[in-house]
Design a protein around this nucleic acid. Structure first.
Lengths: 202, 202
DNA sequence: CGGCACCCATGACAAATGTCAGACGCGTCC
DNA sequence: GGACGCGTCTGACATTTGTCATGGGTGCCG
């Protein structure tokens, strides 16, 4: 009885190579591959894999949102996420939507195969390093609105534009930003955006 | 007569998978692997490969700086760079230091093998898409100092800090930034940093 | 019910930032 | 030699921003 695996990664090179390596394991079968979020979803519906291995960053829809849909539509399919950049926030969001495995791309193929088996067996696997980061980053002190406004400030837009996009008065926006800056301990809102991103608060 | 290849990528999963795929080609031999910039350099010195395949982002030293050293120390070794995020600036910098191939990770393993042969044959290969981006981004209108100050502004630091780090007066910093903001057409320096990054001007 | 936290807003003040004009020295190129 | 671009600086001004006090509205929890 082999484990049926879905592989989703927008980088053809990686996906192909990964598929080749996993095929070497005789208890694993790659039944489908996808290069984007929506495609991953469609493939999953068509092939009903036991385990879905998703890249975090994909065009269309990112790994976490694909995972969300997958958990709802195919509860029997265990989802795990592979990523290059392990931001604590991603891990948190992923676990919240029911992802069972979260690993950086620095693991070896052997380890990955082992983790796929672990996840398929109903257990969970989270990379030590990333877990430690997530814990030390702590919970977000930002309120929903503060985080929202901070995100709108992410591309360096002036207050007026942020206010318009958020449908708030400029004064309110400044209050939220000021509060967010205080909470993050940043020098100004731009640095605050950076810090909040690093800690996974946005 | 086979092509001797050095593979450098900090992601174990990718590197291993890539090595496995390239080994399937009988005219290619992976003679060394490295997980960081300095390690890649050391491996290259020890094994003198015909072609070095470098990831753009690696701990220690990035692909371009490794390529620079490599070109100087081992002129017979052709260098190519593989990357996930193809910023036009990277391509430009890479070509400037003598990199012969620049490809995104979206190519297939087949194509990669073919490109390695191309590069080994002394010809060049640059991804169409990336080349188009680089051309359309145009040349940087920023002076050296403007670019330098813009980089120091990248993390959202206040002017005072930028001035200190650049050993300039605050007034001068503001002048450069103002000029950079005008040239990029941005709303403020933070947006200017973003734009300049996107276009590969920093 | 009485806090309490959050949402939204206003107004006022201080500090940071963006913009502009002008000035000096240094190279390069014609 | 002179024009020109660049780097560097100063000073002044308008604008944007951050901060604070204060207010009212909502909904939740003890």
């Amino acid at each position: 009885m082999t484990v049926r695996v879905l592989l989703a990664d927008d980088e053809h090179l990686i996906r192909g190579a990964l598929a080749a390596l996993l095929r070497l394991e005789d208890d694993l079968t790659v039944v489908a591959e996808a290069a984007s979020g929506p495609e991953a979803l469609a493939m999953a519906r068509a092939h009903r894999p036991d385990v879905a291995v998703l890249d975090l960053q994909m065009p269309g829809a990112d790994g976490v949102s694909v995972a969300t849909s997958l958990r709802r539509e195919l509860p029997d399919c265990q989802v795990m996420i592979v990523t290059s950049h392990g931001r604590p926030g991603h891990l948190k969001r992923a676990l919240a939507v029911g992802v069972r495995g979260f690993v950086p791309k620095t693991v070896s193929a052997q380890q990955l195969a082992e983790i796929i088996r672990t996840v398929h067996g109903g257990r969970r696997y989270v990379d030590q390093e990333l877990a430690a980061d997530a814990i030390s980053a702590g919970d977000s002190p930002l309120t929903a609105r503060e985080a929202e406004v901070l995100e709108l400030a992410a591309d360096g837009a002036p207050i007026a534009e942020i206010a318009e996009r958020a449908s708030l008065s400029q004064g309110t926006v400044r209050n939220y930003l000021s509060s967010a800056v205080t909470k993050t301990g940043a020098e100004n809102r731009h640095a605050a955006v950076r810090l909040a991103r690093e800690r996974g608060w946005v």
